[in-house]
Design a protein around this nucleic acid. Structure first.
Lengths: 226, 226
DNA sequence: TTGCATCTTGACCATTTGGTCAAATCACAC
DNA sequence: GTGTGATTTGACCAAATGGTCAAGATGCAA
């Protein structure tokens, strides 16, 4: 397993994908996300993914040249959406607002796409065989940039001195935990993020813990107007 | 895959295990932990585990009747050590000290047994096929008990009102994150918990964030003596 | 040393599974 | 309608893998 790139049938005429290709690739990726997140790379079978996608194994292999190719395409497909929230952390905004918004977005993603979270976790836990290069370049750059933002907030006295990288790891850990360990959470509380009330209470608790932990007032004092 | 129990060769005379059995079972469990945590249940192979343990596949299957039996034994083997720290949370102690000690112990475990953490995470992420019953009974009881402890601390005004279950989840999430995602952490920071300095900074950052988040003074004001 | 139970292994088997291929079917431009 | 390329599939293959078994090696008590 090496590399991480898209995949197209060997021969093609139009610049883009045909209507059928578009639909089938999408069906496959959706089915693959389900299988890979549920069973891991080794545990998932091409046949099962094909069945979930409503086609024969042979046909699936017409669209993706190998199991590894499906896996990589699935990873690439979720990676962007997964890392987007951090990019929106705005240096010019209020630290409390910005961090609260980031936490909220991450919990939102965990609630909406728990399978994506588990797939990502699985990949990293196995040593990130496919996405290590991305982590070491793109993600590293992004994290360094945002650490600098937090550092500036600290230096201007807008929040308590906290190691920015640990703050980011803590936010990742807590928010993703609710998706990755949802089975355990359901076993212990009877609920998980699919319950809107539980999502709300999670958001409240996590945001409150982390923001207060970072020396920020939360919840913000009620808005100015009387 | 069902049940979760020990395993012994079909026939045996002495009450305990023979010296050879003791040694080989131990070698197998150690090798199994390495393989299962690295590749997951499906990705690990009996042959590879046997090789790591320095014996033939046939011999391994003399000690454990099936791959699933090895897996269950490995899980059972790590489960107790993994859940022990929470049990030590003392209702009579000082909240800040108790929580700080708990966090320290959890980080210690993540540093010492990252493979155990990843195996546990893997199991839960796949839906906890083997240990769900344990989570729903033993762990649930334990968590309820400790939530009550925290509740009492809150009711007696010794800490800010925080949903106890979310507090526990946050501690689990953060501390285990450093073991489960160590590859990512290493990619981003160049270090992981195997570095004593990094372990120290992690402990400081996480403890400070969570305790202050819970409205506890941390670090404690320097001890009484001049 | 001897006898027996424990321990160890190589040969073997059945199943699963990723992947190939040639043939059949379909979509659609002309 | 017809022809051509895109799409789809069943038959098939080779490798990997969990597990069985009978035979041999080893440890040990008498």
């Amino acid at each position: 397993m090496t590399g991480l790139s898209g995949q197209t049938p060997a021969s093609y005429k139009p610049v883009g994908l045909s209507r059928i290709q578009e639909k089938n690739r999408s069906l496959i990726l959706e089915a693959a996300l389900g299988e890979f997140s549920k069973k891991g790379f080794s545990g998932a079978t091409v046949e099962r993914i094909a069945a979930d996608a409503g086609m024969s194994k042979s046909n699936l292999l017409y669209y993706f040249s190998s199991k590894e190719a499906i896996y990589n395409a699935t990873l690439a497909h979720i990676l962007e959406i997964w890392l987007t929230p951090l990019k929106t952390l705005n240096p010019l905004g209020d630290p409390a607002d910005e961090l609260a918004a980031y936490i909220r977005q991450k919990i939102e993603l965990s609630a909406k796409f728990p399978e994506a979270s588990r797939l990502f976790a699985n990949e990293v836990m196995q040593g990130a065989p496919q996405i290590l290069p991305v982590l070491e370049t793109d993600l590293k750059r992004l994290v360094e940039e945002k650490c600098q933002v937090i550092e500036d907030w600290i230096d201007t006295g807008r929040m308590r001195p906290v190691d920015p990288v640990h703050l980011i790891f803590t936010i990742w850990a807590t928010t993703q935990h609710y998706a990755d360990f949802s089975v355990q959470i359901k076993a212990l509380t009877g609920k998980d993020l699919s319950d809107p009330d539980f999502q709300r209470s999670t958001e409240t608790a996590v945001t409150s813990l982390i923001l207060n932990g970072a020396g920020l007032k939360w919840p913000r004092e009620s808005d100015p107007g009387a």
